Computed example of a mutant assay.
Amino acid sequence: MIAREILAVKQQLGLEHLELTCLPAEFHFHPDRIAPAMDKAIVEAKAEGYTHIYVGYADCGTGGLLDRVCEKHGVERIAGPHCFAFYQGAAAYAQVTDADMMSFYMTDFLCRQFEAFFIRPLGLDRHPELVTDYFGNYEKLIYLAQTDDPALDQVAEDAAKMLGLVYERRATGYGDLPSALANAVSNAADQ
C-alpha cells in the first residue's frame, strides 16, 4: 500500500540502490496473512544474499505478530501501528489519536483504490444502503494527503459525501517515511 510512496522517497533521497519487494495490498483486509508472508519474504531475500532488510510495514493490524517475525530475523520495521500514524508523524499522530477516534482515514493509495478497496468489496456499488452499516459510527473522513493532486482530493471529498461524513484534508506529505528509510540505510552502513 505504500510502494509508490517508498519509490518517491527513494528517488527524493537518492537511495536508488534500495530494492523494493511488495506483498499484496489486499493483505490489509486479512492482517493475519501479513506476518507469515513477511516471514517467507525475509527468508527468500536472505537466501538471495540480501544482508540488510528493512520492513516497510507498520503493525497494520497484526497484533504484534509482525514484530515477532522481525525479531526472529533481526530486522527492523517502520515504527507505528499503521501508515496513518507514520504519514502524520508519530508525534502528531499521538496528539490527535483521541480526537480522531471516530474518523475514517484515507491516503493517496486509498483514494486511488477507493472503488477496488471499499466500494466493490463491501458491495456498496450494489447495496448503497449498507453505507450506514459500515460507516455509521464514523463522524468524519480525514484525507492524509501525501501529494498535492486535485484528482485525489476530489475522490476523498466525494467519498466523504457518499459516506455522509464531514471532510477534512491534512497535507502530511510522507511523514516519518523519509527519516525511517534514511535511518535504515544509515544503520545498514554502520554494520
Rank of each mutant, 00 (worst) to 15 (best):
L110C: 03
P150S: 13
A8I: 06
T147N: 15
E44P: 04
R112W: 02
E44R: 11
C70M: 07
I6Q: 00
R126P: 02
Y134K: 04
L20P: 01
Y143C: 04
Y50N: 08
L163Y: 13
G173M: 08
M162I: 03
K40G: 10
A45K: 06
L7D: 12
N137M: 13
A45H: 04
T107Y: 00
H28Q: 08
T51C: 14
M162W: 08
V131K: 12
H17P: 02
T147A: 13
T97G: 07
N187Y: 10
F114S: 02
D59C: 09
M1D: 02
P178E: 08
T21I: 13
H17C: 05
N187T: 14
I34R: 00
A58E: 04
L65K: 15
N187M: 09
H73A: 09
E76A: 14
A91Y: 07
F109S: 01
M106W: 00
Y167V: 07
Q95T: 11
R4W: 10
A182F: 09
C22E: 08
F86C: 04
Y105C: 10
A182P: 03
K46F: 07
D39P: 00
E139D: 12
K72G: 06
A92M: 10
D190M: 15
G61T: 05
L15H: 05
A189V: 12
A25M: 02
V55M: 02
H73Q: 11
